[in-house]
Structure formats: structure tokens, C-alpha cells
Design a protein around this nucleic acid. Sequence first.
DNA 1: CAGCGGTTGGACTGGACGGTCCACTGCCAG
DNA 2: CTGGCAGTGGACCGTCCAGTCCAACCGCTG
Lengths: 224, 224
Amino acid sequence: MIHMHEGPPLISEAPSTARGRATRERIVTAAAALMHQYGVAGTSLDEVRAATGTSKSQLYHYFADKSALVGAVIQRQVQQVLQAQQPELDGIDSMIALRRWRDRVVAMQRQAGAVGGCPIGRLVAELADSERGAPVELVDGFATWQRRLADGLGRMHRRGELDADPDALAAGLLAALQGGLLLAQATRSVRPLEAALDLALAGVAAHLVPAARPGPVPGRPHPS
Amino acid sequence: MIHMHEGPPLISEAPSTARGRATRERIVTAAAALMHQYGVAGTSLDEVRAATGTSKSQLYHYFADKSALVGAVIQRQVQQVLQAQQPELDGIDSMIALRRWRDRVVAMQRQAGAVGGCPIGRLVAELADSERGAPVELVDGFATWQRRLADGLGRMHRRGELDADPDALAAGLLAALQGGLLLAQATRSVRPLEAALDLALAGVAAHLVPAARPGPVPGRPHPS
DNA sequence: CAGCGGTTGGACTGGACGGTCCACTGCCAG
DNA sequence: CTGGCAGTGGACCGTCCAGTCCAACCGCTG
């Protein structure tokens, strides 16, 4: 079981030369790929070493210990995932944009051979501990991801097009994505992912205020 | 990395006395609990041994190797999960029944301290391999779970109350549940689970045929 | 009570893995 | 050219862990 460290720095060394930075980068990249495929526990430092053509001392030169390396991998994956959807994620304030995002996510998964779920999701499942929960970096990753979704939804809400809590909808969408990816990974097919996202999108659409205009929907107060 | 075995039996011994069966049972139960909490890789056989007050030779008397034990744990967890929702899962053929199921699942998670996701989900995340996917037992577990949901939905569909593919809806619901549990585990709160299920339920409701109404739905022959 | 199969205890082994240590090399500043 | 420091190579250590082995034990049946 790997526990994320807490407390004092433990930042190990930040490389000061270009070569050093390149090596560190190479290590994190390879480690991220290996851990995505085989899991954190299933990836040994020797494998990372072999995959990068580095030596043991370099790993420990740039990272205090394995959990520090895992921390770096987490940061990288969070950044990577968010960046990959950046364009579609930025301005989700209409059903059309939401569908574009859906298509993008599905396409990415299909391109990846419908194999291997969300890197963040996998890390959470593996690293979450009953008493301390998941590492903060991961929780934060989910949080900003959800916020990005909620931002656009919030705009729709403020425009009076949506009559539900944008945060809850965003959480639901994110959950649908994660669950869809999990099932997709299990069945090695994108179908469950599509089903999950479509169902969630239908749920969002159900909270659309029918006409921009007239009168409140029966039993559902119209937002100011 | 643990791989599930395939090929020849490898069933090890089935206990023939009551005492033997009790011991085997004790081992599987404890192993399931440990693996749910710490993951498969994070649970050593020595820990299982200690938790059950058994000896190494007993573990290897009843299970060929660790992966056989994992297989038994999987079977147990699948059965356990499905059984826990049996009553609510059995006749999901109305929105009311669907909500009852939702409430049941949320209550179970809340009771568990909003900690630790779905046992099956965790196993899938940890054991799924890029090239061979998840162990069949797990995929089957998901499949029967989804079928249970789809059965009720199918009845609604045949009654003309639902205008969508019951299988896709079931997959979406299951994904929402899994994703919701993952987020719940990360944030240690049931909120995301509620949000996920509510959104999915809204999605199902959106596919309800407006009036129960007489006569065939357009384009969809009414079943005899 | 003798024998036997199912069951149990626990020492032992070989290898994997995280982590340490020290000697060396390349690069840049003075 | 040279001293020094970031960067590198890789042998080595202690621990953990899956899996092996054999000697005992229990409870049944003949």
C-alpha cells in the first residue's frame, strides 16, 4: 500500500540544469504510462528505471521516495487529462457544447482502443484509503474538473435556461464519465461510456427550462 | 500485478468436512474485507493468515495460489453486492421503484460511512489489464447486474411507457452508480453519489412516454 | 484402538522490490 | 586547465512476500 506523504517538504531536488530537467521529465512520463497501465503497486522502480534508461540513483536524486514519484505522476495526469479536453470543456454553456464534449470524450476513449479507463479514476480507486481518503492532489483534480463543468452550467442557470443546481449536475456528469469509463474498461467497448454520457445528458436536458419564456413550469418555480 | 488464471481447473480442494468448509469460509470472508479496504496488491497472505488465525498451509490447502483466492473473493463480492440490493433490484419497472433503489443504495453507502466505493468497482479498477481486460467473473457480475436493471426497464418499454433501449439505460444507471461511488470515495461524502443517481434518474424519466395513454406510440407497435 | 484422509502448524526458500551508498563522469566557472 | 558540483552508474542491503514442505493432529470408520 502506498501512502502519500504529508508534512514537511520532501520535495527532493529540483533539477538545476537542462539535462537534469529532461531526465526528470523522462522519468515522470514513463512512470505515468506504466502506472496507468499496470497500476501503482504493479509498477516497480526497476521497471521505471529500465523504461527510461536511467539508474536507481537518478530516481532517488529527483524523488525522495516512490510516493514522491507517485505524487509527480498524479500532478502530471491531472494536468494532462484536463488539458486534453480544454477546448471542449472551456465553454460548456449549451446542450450543443455539452454534446461536443461528450463526443470528444468518447472519441478519445475509442482512439485509445476502448481500453484503460481514466488515469485519475484509476489512481483514486487504487490509492483511496478508508481513513484518509484519496490524496489531496487527486481530490483537487476532480474538484477543478467539476468546477469547469459547473462554470458553464452556472452560466446557463443564470441565464434562466436551467432550473437545477449546476454543481450537482456537474458532479453527476463527472460521475457518469468515470463510471462509463470503468465499465468501458471492463467490457473493452465504448458502448457503456456512450450510454452513461447520453443518459446524463438527457438528465441535464430534462432540467432545461422549456421555453426561454412563458410562465413557470408547473410545480417547478421559475428561477429569478 | 495479479493475473486471474485461466485454462485447466486449478480449483484446489473443495473441503469435505464441516470444519474445512468453515475454515475456507473464514478465509474468504477476511480476505474480501482486507482486499476491499487495502486493495488486492495491498493485502498479503500473511495478513489474511493473521486475520483468520490460520496457517500458511491452510491457505494453500484450500486455494492453489493467491489468484485463486482472489477469484473466490470476487465471486463472493459479486454475490454479496447483488444480494444486498435484491429486494429493490428485483422489480424495477416504475420510476417509483427506481427511486426506491436509488434511496437504498445511497443509504447503504451512507451507513458505510461514505467511505470505500463499490467492491466490484475497486476490483475492476485494480485488476483490469489493458490487453486482457478485467477477469471474466467481474465482467459477468456487471453483466448480470445490468441485466437485472434492464429487465424491469424492459417491462416498462414493452408496456409502452419508455421509448429508449432498456439495455442502454441500464448501462447508464450502472455507470452512474459506479462513478458516483468513486467520487463519493474520493470526497468521503455521499453527495456525489446522490447527484449522479439523480441525474441518471432524470435521464430515464426524460424517456418516459408522456401519457400512459391508449393506442400505440407512434412508430412503435404496442405489444399485444 | 488402529488406520486413514482431511486438516493444521510453522519453519524455510528464492526472488522481487524499495531504498542506500559510493565511485565516477561531464559540464561549466574562474 | 582545474576545481567543484549536478548528474549518473550500479553494486549492495534489509525486508517483505508468494509459495514449498513436512511433521503433526483430529475425527471418523472399520
